[in-house]
Each structure stands twice: as structure tokens, then as C-alpha cells.
Design a protein around this nucleic acid. Structure first.
Lengths: 164, 164
DNA sequence: GGCAGTTGGTTGATGTGTCAACTAAACTGG
DNA sequence: CCAGTTTAGTTGACACATCAACCAACTGCC
């Protein structure tokens, strides 16, 4: 708690951190811009639609979507209201669990995803993969998985001894 | 414009993209949480203070800060108002250019950065570097720089021929 | 010098995200 | 079967971000 001189970053780490931070600032922003320009929606909205488009019945519980997209329940409610008002999504109570709400992609929502995905993927290709070798793609996958796992809350690495 | 079947992602690319997207969702969110908990500020606010702390005279033009942090001028104005109201920052017109505004870290702002940085760096260590080998740190740097450069608007890769 | 255009920054209106309080349905233990 | 608790989602109040309109200072040019 009162550590005064923690592990500072090495020169290599500093460079890597600057590069990573820079990527995390500019890449989402660029993808947001592309989606806003070409499809009139934000990255989070696209994530929701895209996820639903890959689910059986194009349907998923709100809470599942929320944890996938890392947004709070209330945030997802607002997003769903917007998507619903544009006719891309419908909501109805889950017949198997009256508490839950099922979100389903409409036909228009499906078509929107189908129209939007190619341009989005092309943007990812240009911004991410065009500059990387096959080896770097493999490296990126491993590094990304490692960091994502560490940063995901509630998924602490298995540590020896009791956690309580 | 009418490409109907663009370059789709290979299996390797898809895995890498999922990992990268996952990292870009969870890492900023985790860093935001840590700063909110330990220092009562957001990541953007910390970025601004941290940048100023490294500038000569702990001073920088608003427009320079804005482009560094990838926020709009108006957004930065609101951020600066908040930081000013907490006594961490002052603003005054640039004597050399009456249009510009210089933002300067106050002594309290400097101390806030000094107090906050160690915990933030420790969080970066734990979330990013503890899981990576030295080789992966080097790989991350190269990959991050490449992608960041590609995603940064207005910095198109040098292409042959006139751009105008 | 003076007017047109540009640049740097602020502000008002509006849209979006967040937090806490709330409702309703489903478990849980007597 | 009925309180007490947990879970899923919504809503109101508020904080924050965004967009367009704006103002002031500089720049270029005749």
C-alpha cells in the first residue's frame, strides 16, 4: 500500500507501452469513424448487432450481450432502445425466465450487418493486417489473449492458496 | 466502392483480431477503473496531466494536448475546466499568439501526478508486462507502432506520386 | 492599412454514458 | 407456501462527450 518506488518500466517496456497506448487510442477511434461514416452507427452498436447475427436464432439474452461487449446493463438498455428505434432489433421477455429479456435481430438488422461487415473488415485489414507479417499476426494473437485475460476482471489467474 | 466480396479474414487473422479487440475493450477499462479508484480521475484526465508533467515548464498549448490525447478541442476545454476546478492546472493566453491557450500544471497537479504514477505504472506492469516475455515486449512494440501509425488519420503512409 | 480567410479556443444545445434506486421474476430455506 | 434474497432489466437524475455556432487573434494579400 505504501510502496514508494515500484517496479518502473524498462526502456524496452516504455517503448512498448507507448506503442500499445497509442494503438489503443487511435485504432478504436479510426474504426468508430469508419462505422459512423459508412453505416451511421458506433462501434458498440455494431458489436451488438454483429454478435446477435452470429447467435442461433439471431437472438441473445441482454445480460449475455452486455458481458460480451463489456457494457453495463443500463448502458445496454439505452443501446438496445436506439437500435430498436431504428428497426434493427426487437426485445421480448424470455419465456423460460421471466426476468430475462431476449434481443433479436430483425430482418432489417440482419441486412444492415450484411451490408456493413465487408467495409468494416476491409478497414481492419488495412489498419491492422496490411502492415503485419504472418509471424506478427501469430504474435499479436498470443500477446492480445494474454493481456486481455489479465485485464478481464473476475478472471484472476489461478494462484496457489485460498483466495479467501 | 461496390466490392461485394472483400478480403475476408483468415483463420489466423480472425483469432488475432478477436484477441486484439478483446484487449482493446478490457485493458482501457481496467486502467480506467484503477485510476478512478486510486486517484479519482479518468484515463484521459491522467493522460493530460501526465503529458504536461513531462513538458518543459510543465506547460503545453491546448491544441497540442488535444492532438496528443486524440480529443477534440471542445472536449479538451471541458476536461481542462474540470482539472482547473480541482486546482491541478491553470490556463492563460499564449503571449506569443493571442489565440492560443497555454495549460500549465500547478504544484498540486504535479504532486498529484507524482502520487498517481507509481500505482498506475504498477497496474500496467501487472496487466501487460507480467504475462509477456522480453521477446514479446519487443514484438508488441513493433506491432503497436505499425498499427498506431496506420490508424492515425492524416498520417498516410508515404506513397509514390503527388498527393495533390 | 484593411479586408478575406484561417486557426485556436470557448460555449449552448443536444446526445450518450453512468450511478443509484426501483420493479418484477426466480430461487432458497424454513 | 411464504418471507428474504438474488438476478435481470429498466428508469430518472446527473455527468460527460459531441456538434455546430461563435468570437478573437493571426496571416496573407492587394
Amino acid at each position: 500500500m505504501t510502496e514508494q518506488t515500484p517496479r518502473w518500466l524498462s526502456e524496452e517496456q516504455t517503448q512498448a507501452w507507448i506503442a500499445l497506448a497509442s494503438m489503443m487510442v487511435w485504432l478504436p477511434s479510426a474504426l468508430d469513424d469508419q462505422l459512423e461514416r459508412d453505416a451511421g452507427m458506433t462501434y458498440v452498436e455494431y458489436t451488438v448487432l454483429s454478435w446477435l447475427s452470429m447467435q442461433p436464432g439471431r437472438t441473445s439474452r441482454m445480460s449475455d450481450v452486455a458481458s460480451l461487449a463489456n457494457v453495463s446493463a443500463s448502458h445496454l438498455t439505452r443501446i438496445a432502445i436506439r437500435l430498436e428505434s431504428r428497426g434493427w432489433l426487437t426485445r421480448r421477455p424470455d419465456p423460460n425466465d421471466g426476468r430475462a429479456t431476449l434481443a433479436t435481430l430483425t430482418e432489417a438488422g440482419w441486412e444492415k450487418v450484411v451490408q456493413t461487415a465487408p467495409g468494416h473488415v476491409e478497414e481492419v485489414q488495412q489498419l491492422v493486417f496490411d502492415g503485419l507479417s504472418a509471424a506478427q499476426v501469430r504474435q499479436l494473437r498470443v500477446i492480445g489473449e494474454t493481456v486481455a485475460k489479465a485485464a478481464r476482471p473476475g478472471l484472476c489467474l489461478p494462484s496457489p492458496g485460498p483466495t479467501d
